[in-house]
Each structure stands twice: as structure tokens, then as C-alpha cells.
Design a protein around this nucleic acid. Structure first.
Lengths: 195, 195
DNA sequence: GGAATAACCGTATGAACGTATGGTTCTGCG
DNA sequence: CGCAGAACCATACGTTCATACGGTTATTCC
């Protein structure tokens, strides 16, 4: 059912995720959806939580794989940040769903909490990575890690926004170049921290 | 009527901008709103266009005033970018309205066009300013102006997003510091181009 | 003055939606 | 078996909304 919600929002926006539409998309009856979710809000919130969990899971998986491959902190971070960009249809859909819920957030404290939490989680991971870089000379010692992390998350958010509005290979490479350049400036070293 | 739409969306989201609510908020009847706008979409699009025009107008005014005051390109740009951040209730409302329409954009080509146009306009102005900086030594000669402009707009978008979710003086100063730092890096000179 | 046009209003209509409800089929267990 | 509870369904109800429509007042122009 959560997948049905995801597909509907990704394709036609939040308003398309009606009870009847979700039931039809999932191949169930309206009554069954009601059986599992007391209200529509509960259903949507569940779907939203699932999506953010998926996203954080993917980032964690990328981190783990890159660490195992012995890549530098900078390379790992770049992979994670690029993963957040809507570069293919799947991630475009995911991005649209997330944005739909963020738009809804001001009226829905629980949805807002999910958004704040995932954003803070991501920012924390970045800050930690930057901080770790100091120990092995990959980061300049006087770098403000949390400020740099905020810059990176804001940058990737804004680039995602731009790429969603204006897709295309040129825009994609421009976004990648900007991220790579900023990461290079923040983590200039070439240490293999996790190797 | 456009102001009524603005107030309603800023306070309660796009769904709150019903015909009846707009009429009540504006002090008119539903019939009168229909008299001036054939459909709800037309009304909303008009309101959206008005808001983006207001925003671009404010940026233009700030630019003109700062130029008259003989400030550097970097200072002018910083003022313009900070103007885009949701730092007070008024701009928070404006930000929410813009975001609401952006969320709606994928299903509404005309709204999408407005969003793309204003974003491109802003990016173009920034790129032009950076390019101008080269002529008087404020910009490094080998800077890619359009890439730098894209970075700045993306950064300010992402920071606006963050500030909207997490308001507060600490977040505001952090965002200002990041913007100032990036501008300093892109436009390191201190030329008074327009003086 | 008088007609045409714009400004303006209240209400009716039909569609879409969330949810409540009553009922049916399946499943596991004592 | 018998039955309790979960899974599952179709439909009815009340609300909300955009829009259509008919009518009334104000303004403008000849």
C-alpha cells in the first residue's frame, strides 16, 4: 500500500493519493486500506516514513560499500550526495514525493518531525565525516564541521531542486562538478581514513 | 484578491485557497471572484505571477539602491541573496506560497514556466554580476560565471529550505555566514564596479 | 433618459472525497 | 466441529468544493 501511495504521488502529486486511488493502485478495496490505517493521514505518514527510511538506508549502504572499497572520505561523501539528486526517473519520483510531504509539513507536525529528523541525520553524518577528516589530515584543522555540513546539505537540496525543474545531462554534470568542487575545498586531503 | 490568496496559502497552505475562502478573505462574494477569473487555476496563476514579480522587483530595487550607495558587487549580491531567505514572518509566508506553487508545478505547465523563468532570471543576474566582476578584478578571471551562479542560487534555495524548517537566530547567522563566505571566495576583490 | 455593459450577489448542482457501517470470507485454535 | 478474530468488501452518508446560473445594482456612454 505504501508503494501504491508512492507511485501515485510520484506520478500525479499528493492530491492524487486518495483512499480510492490507493486502493485501486494496490489492487485492494477501500475497506481493506481502512482496516490497516485508521485514517488517511496515518496512511500517508506511514508511506512518508518508509520513504525516508529507504533513503537513509541507501545512503548507509553506499557508505558501507565505499568504506569497504577503501575510498577516501571525500569520495564517499560525493557518492552519498549524488545519490540524493533526482538524476533518474526513480529518484525523480522519490524527490517529488518527499517535496510533496515537505510542503504539507507546516500543517502536519508529525510529518514535519520526520523531515527535520532525516535532514538532521544526514547533516550529522556529513559533519561527523568532516570532523573525522581532521584526524588524518584530510580536513583543514580550523574547518567548522557543522557549518560545512550545513552548506553541503543546503547545496545538494538546492541542486536537487534545480535538477528537478530542469533535467538534462548538462545540468547533471554541472551539479556534480559543483558538489565535487566544494567537497574538494572542504576535504582537500587524500587520506584513506577507513582503509 | 491576489493578496487574499497569498494570505490564505501563507497561513494554511494551498488547499486553504478555495474560492469561498478567497472571497471571504477578500471581502467579496464568490460570484465576483468568478467575474474576474474564469477558473480557480487562473486566479491562482495570477496570484503566483504577482508574487514572483514582487520578489524580482524587490531584488531589482535592492540592487539599484546598493549601486547608488556605491557598494561592491559582492555586497550587492549578498543583500539580494539574503532577501530571498525566509528570515521574518512576511518572507516566511512568501516562501511558503512559492513552495506550494512549485509543488504544484509538475502538473501545471504554466506554473512551472513561471518558476523556471524567475529562477533563470535570478541566476542570469548573478552570472552577469560575476562576469562584470572580471572586468575590474573583483572576480578571478578563470571563474565559470554561470556555474558559480548556479551554485549560489542552489545554495540560497537550500538554505531557505533549512531556515524555513528550523527558524532561529543561530540558523540565520549560520546561513548568512555561509553565503558571505562563498561570495567572498567567488568575488575576492573589493572593486566598486558601479561607483 | 435609457440602454448597454460592468460590477456584484446568492444559490443550485454535480462531482469527489474521507469515513462509518454492515456484512462476507478466510484462518487458526481449543 | 465451532467460533473468534482477522482479512476483506461494497455501499451509504455527510461534507466540501468548483462551477453554472439567474438576478440585482451601479456605471458609462449616446
Amino acid at each position: 500500500m505504501a508503494q501504491a501511495v508512492h507511485r501515485l504521488i510520484a506520478h500525479d502529486g499528493l492530491d492524487a493519493a486518495t483512499m480510492a486511488a490507493v486502493a485501486r493502485e494496490a489492487g485492494f478495496s477501500v475497506g481493506l486500506v481502512q482496516h490497516y490505517f485508521k485514517s488517511k493521514d496515518e496512511l500517508l505518514l506511514f508511506a512518508y516514513k518508509r520513504i525516508t527510511a529507504d533513503l537513509l538506508g541507501r545512503v548507509a549502504r553506499i557508505t558501507a560499500e565505499s568504506e569497504a572499497a577503501g575510498r577516501s572520505i571525500r569520495e564517499i561523501m560525493l557518492d552519498c550526495l549524488v545519490e540524493l539528486l533526482p538524476l533518474d526517473p526513480e529518484r525523480r519520483g522519490e524527490y517529488r514525493v518527499s517535496r510533496a510531504f515537505q510542503t504539507r509539513a507546516p500543517d502536519d507536525p508529525t510529518a514535519a518531525a520526520v523531515a527535520v529528523e532525516t535532514s538532521a541525520h544526514l547533516r550529522g553524518k556529513l559533519a561527523q565525516g568532516i570532523e573525522n577528516g581532521k584526524e588524518c589530515g584530510e580536513t583543514e584543522p580550523d574547518t567548522d564541521a557543522s557549518l560545512a555540513a550545513l552548506e553541503l546539505t543546503a547545496l545538494v537540496d538546492g541542486l536537487a531542486d534545480h535538477l528537478y525543474r530542469a533535467p538534462g545531462p548538462r545540468e547533471a554534470t554541472a551539479a556534480g562538478a559543483i558538489l565535487a568542487s566544494r567537497l574538494q575545498a572542504i576535504l582537500p586531503g587524500a587520506c584513506r581514513h577507513y582503509a
